[in-house]
Amino acid sequence: MSEVTMTVNGRKVSGQCEDRTLLVHFLRDNLGLTGTHVGCDTSQCGACVVHVDGKAVKSCTMLAAQASGSDVVTIEGLAAEGDLTPVQAAFKEHHGLQCGFCTPGMIMAATDMINRYGAGNLDEKTVRAELEGNICRCTGYHNIVKAILAASDDMAKGAAAA
């Protein structure tokens, strides 16, 4: 067993878990943060993407023990209670989902993508290439791509106005 301590969505948490416990299971089972999903469990689908120390990673492919000491953000931690981030709002506005299973991972990947490229610096080709690690079986990706581009542009406008 390991004693694992990390900051999750701004809150310091600790818990006991087996050394083999995956980060996604620690988040879901120990902390009750079930917004992060387990889709394929084979590192392909990206439904489990969270941010660890500011970078998007697949939480099904990292041990909780490896993440001990890190700063973790999950889908629950992006926006304040009752609010939506520009990326979440754009997924709603552009209907970037159908069943919604992949959506938490898509939003975390999209947020990371916009952080890395800078708001307003994305084009369709880049977004499609950057979504290589996130699989959606419903939408055919069109509205997801539209939502990410819209969020990126909205955030650029917001930054210019501020």
Partner: peptide, 8 residues
């Protein structure tokens, strides 16, 4: 791989 794999 993909962006998330490249981060690790």
């Amino acid at each position: 791989g993909d962006p998330h794999v490249r981060h690790m």
